[in-house]
Amino acid sequence: MSVESHRGAPKEPQNGVNVGRRVFLGLAALGALGVAFGNSVHNFVGDAVGSGLGGLLPGGDRFRIYSITGTYPKIKRDKYRLKVSGLVDHPTTFTLADLQSMPKTSFTKAFQCVTGWRVPDVHWEGVKLSDLLDRVGVKSGAVAVSFDSYDNADTESLTLEQAHLPDVIVAYSMLGAPVTTEHGGPVRLYVAPMFGYKSLKWLSGIRVVDAIEPGFWEQNGYPVNGWLDGTTGPNNPDPGLT
């Protein structure tokens, strides 16, 4: 027992103001408002000051770099190969130059992570997945497309129908420059109408198959159809998200 604890307890403040409770509730309310409206505020600020400045603000437009393995596979651009196989007429291995010589598709669309962060106005450039599939020729009986990564861990899948959407691309350029290693370069998938986990990084192989093979994230509980609006599909995407 310490000396002091034997002494009389300090008098209860008779007319004290409970500032603690006020500040606590105030900050909690601020937090709740931020959760409810932070997305709109952030989009407004981002539109007002541009995404360059917006990136410096808290909660700014910043990619959060994920990797399943904890490292980035580093692939030299001239060593890069994309193997397309499975139920196709002409199994083909593409180099980066092969992909770049094909008809180019580019557009500007947001990258939306399923956990909530979002980077608006990302410029993407690459080859439509449907063009690539047409090039190799999809055999009858094919139902889905599976994707493999150079990290030997991530896998993804799309139905053949999803794979033919015009904004599903094999991307070699992003943010106005070749896709960097941390963003999944030299070549990655970008599935615009779905959450970011569907846009597999370090794309190494495309296999045309006769059944959907749930990918890495789907095996860990994410929906196989990662539509941005959560349910309905590509014809009715959430206007707030794209």
Binding site: G31, V41, D238
Partner: peptide
């Protein structure tokens, strides 16, 4: 999803 974004912001 908007709440997730808001929670990230906060």
């Amino acid at each position: 999803v908007p709440w997730r974004s808001g929670a990230t912001f906060v």
